[in-house]
């Protein structure tokens, strides 16, 4: 809890969200994070399609894959499914 959390009198009833889901940085749940070996990556986009949280994106200009770790929960589906074995799950040592 932090001092900016509101009291029961200040919030809407029934848990109606005052914020968009984009503002909830759920990435801090993860224990492991996927790390990409760009040498091995064949840009097949399997990980992009299978990420349940839409945190993996394809950058058309560079034809590269990028990860949004602020929402990645570290489920490991991407690493498990990568046909090129370009993704490995490593302990998340980042803060927050």
């Amino acid at each position: 809890m932090s001092s900016k959390d509101k009291t029961w009198k200040e919030i809407s009833i029934a848990g109606v969200c005052p914020k968009s889901s984009e503002s909830f940085k759920t990435g801090d749940w993860k224990t492991y994070m996927p790390i990409l070996d760009t040498e091995k990556c064949i840009v097949c986009l399997t990980c992009v399609m299978l990420c349940p949280d839409g945190t993996i994106n394809w950058i058309p200009d560079t034809n590269k894959i990028s990860f949004d770790y602020t929402f990645c929960k570290g489920c490991g589906i991407c690493a498990n499914e990568c046909p090129a074995k370009a993704l490995t799950m490593k302990i998340d040592n980042t803060e927050g």
């Binding site: 959390d5 029961w8 848990g15 109606v16 969200c17 889901s21």
Partner: peptide, 16 residues
């Protein structure tokens, strides 16, 4: 549009 029935953990469940 609004979000109904989201999670509310240690920081808000009690208030609801």
């Amino acid at each position: 549009p609004m979000t109904m029935g989201p999670v509310a953990f240690q920081n808000y469940y009690f208030e609801f």
